[in-house]
C-alpha cells in the first residue's frame, strides 16, 4: 500500500516536472486561478471567451446568472436549463474573485466598492484602469481584437491565468513590451 502511494507520488511529481510545470507552480498565485469546468465551457464559450470565475466577485456572478438576466445577457439570449444554470453558477461562485488568493483576483476585489456589483468584467475598476490608455487602433479598430471582451486576443497566456505584460501580444502590432506608445 505504502509502495503504491510512493509510486503514485513519484509518477505524479515527475509528470509535472516533465510538463515543465514547476515554474508555473512556483508563481501560481500571481494571476487569476486558471480553472475550467466542462459544463461552463460548453454553456458559455460557444459565444464568447469563457472568462475565469476569478475575474468577478461572487455577487456579480450571482446577478449575471439569474434566469431573467440570462434571458437578456447583454442583448443576447443565453438561457440555460435550470439544472445547468445551477451547476454553472456553483462553479462560478466557488471560484469567484472574492474566494481566491490569486494576486489579480485580490486586486479586482479590492478595487470594487462594496455597494457596487459590476456585471461586465470591463467595468471592474482595476481592469478598467489597466486598459484605460489603450488607443483604439489596438482594440476597437483592430479587426483581430474588436473589443476588450476578447481577452485572449492579446493575453496569450490567459489559459494559464497569467496576464503579465510580457505575455501580451497585440495582433497586427506585436509584443506590448516592444510598442512605443504604452
Amino acid at each position: 500500500m505504502k509502495k503504491i502511494l510512493l509510486i503514485m507520488a513519484v509518477v505524479g511529481f515527475s509528470s509535472q516536472a516533465y510538463a515543465g510545470n514547476i515554474f508555473e507552480n512556483l508563481f501560481r498565485f500571481k494571476g487569476v486561478k486558471p480553472v475550467m469546468n466542462d459544463l461552463y465551457n460548453d454553456s458559455c464559450s460557444e459565444c464568447h471567451y469563457a472568462y475565469f470565475p476569478g475575474l468577478l466577485p461572487k455577487r456579480s456572478w450571482e446577478k449575471l446568472m439569474l434566469p431573467d438576466a440570462l434571458e437578456d445577457h447583454f442583448g443576447e439570449n443565453a438561457e440555460l436549463d435550470e439544472e445547468d444554470r445551477v451547476e454553472v453558477l456553483k462553479f462560478l461562485v466557488d471560484n469567484a474573485a472574492d474566494t481566491s488568493f490569486y494576486k489579480r483576483s485580490t486586486k479586482i476585489v479590492r478595487s470594487i466598492p462594496e455597494d457596487v456589483t459590476p456585471l461586465r468584467i470591463t467595468e471592474v475598476p482595476y481592469i478598467k484602469r489597466k486598459h484605460k490608455d489603450l488607443p483604439d487602433k489596438y482594440v476597437k479598430n483592430n479587426p483581430k481584437v474588436k473589443s476588450l471582451i476578447n481577452c485572449d486576443a492579446c493575453h496569450r497566456a490567459i489559459d494559464k491565468g497569467i496576464f503579465d505584460d510580457d505575455t501580451i501580444l497585440i495582433p497586427n502590432y506585436g509584443y506590448w513590451s516592444e510598442l512605443d506608445d504604452d
Partner: peptide, 14 residues
C-alpha cells in the same frame, strides 16, 4: 440532443 434543444430555445427567442 441537449445542444439542439438549448440553441433552438435561445435563438428562436432572440
Amino acid at each position: 440532443a441537449k445542444k439542439i434543444k438549448k440553441w433552438f430555445k435561445r435563438n428562436c427567442k432572440w
